[in-house]
Design a protein around this nucleic acid. Sequence first.
DNA 1: GTCTATAACGTGATAGAC
DNA 2: GTCTATCACGTTATAGAC
Lengths: 199, 199
Amino acid sequence: MAIDGRSARGSATKELILDTAMDLFKSSGFRATSVRDIAARSGITHPGLLYHFPTKEALLMAVLQRRDDVEGEPVDFHGLDGRALLGHLVAGAAKNATERGIVELFANLSVEAAAPDHPAHEYFVGRYTSLRATLVEGLEELASAHALRPDVLPAIAAAHLIALMDGLQIQWLLDPATDMVGALSFYVNSLLTEPLEGI
Amino acid sequence: MAIDGRSARGSATKELILDTAMDLFKSSGFRATSVRDIAARSGITHPGLLYHFPTKEALLMAVLQRRDDVEGEPVDFHGLDGRALLGHLVAGAAKNATERGIVELFANLSVEAAAPDHPAHEYFVGRYTSLRATLVEGLEELASAHALRPDVLPAIAAAHLIALMDGLQIQWLLDPATDMVGALSFYVNSLLTEPLEGI
DNA sequence: GTCTATAACGTGATAGAC
DNA sequence: GTCTATCACGTTATAGAC
């Protein structure tokens, strides 16, 4: 809403801190990264950092929010037709398979944030609710276009798709030989009367 | 191998510590539980505990091992025919839905243990490998009995089943209204020519 | 507004008395 | 086998200089 893109989000120092934090969260995970580490790599001391972000968890939330704002990735699938939506899902899995750090981060956070008192709890609940709703919508659209096999229930298939993405990530983290993309696209195609092109 | 069942596993104090640790790991998770907490609830001091289990991680491994020994649950599905195997999978999900603490514990550990240097890494890799192999075996048996729909690939379906169990648990932890058992049994029945009785 | 210095606490782990 | 005492470290948070 501001005229220059910077003041809308905060100072340059804030941006630097956010970049550094995201890097370290990716490569080392949230819990294993200390506020001191992030501060040192940002060229300031750790209380200096805590002036900008009062707690480590506030910093985490800012990183997550900015990732959504910048990449628009996690749930911003609206406006796509059903087949494109499923294609993006598979493409997202393929992209994840090139970034182990961020997969670890989100896998860890998803389960950490299961605790109702976790600072990112509401964020993840909203993220999952929104993604699920988008998927149900896309699948229902496909159903009315007779592009879905007749025994597919959109509500259940949506839960399956999300569960497969999460669960396959765990298997892939434990054993990098796991073919996340192959397993996911096999399921996607099992929903459709006509297979998705190019996968 | 010892004559009385006790000395095979350790002293009564060890058993008490293991019980207490499992309780606390279930209710608060591994990382949020301190060695001091476990020791206090066991009626000893924390160096007293560390005499029996030299590190917190050694204690964790002992808890995991004992759970396997006592319940024989996680991967000891051998000797079951394919349909019974799938039934036990669904029954396990139903049982999990009554014990939030242990679902949180294993969900947390699965992703924590994705790090190759985690003390439980090999344990979880072995656990997943073994479960997957058992499932592939059971599904192949069903395939040769023509009990499987013709387009089902055992290797992929096995990965799907494990991923669905893990992924649905995450959704259920974030939103307890999630129907883990329904979603899992729907997938199981979608594999079979004849639906599983009683689900 | 921004940061340095420091506090106050909890953690896992160890040394050595009993 | 269990204890007291202590260590070194990481954590969040605050007081106050610039």
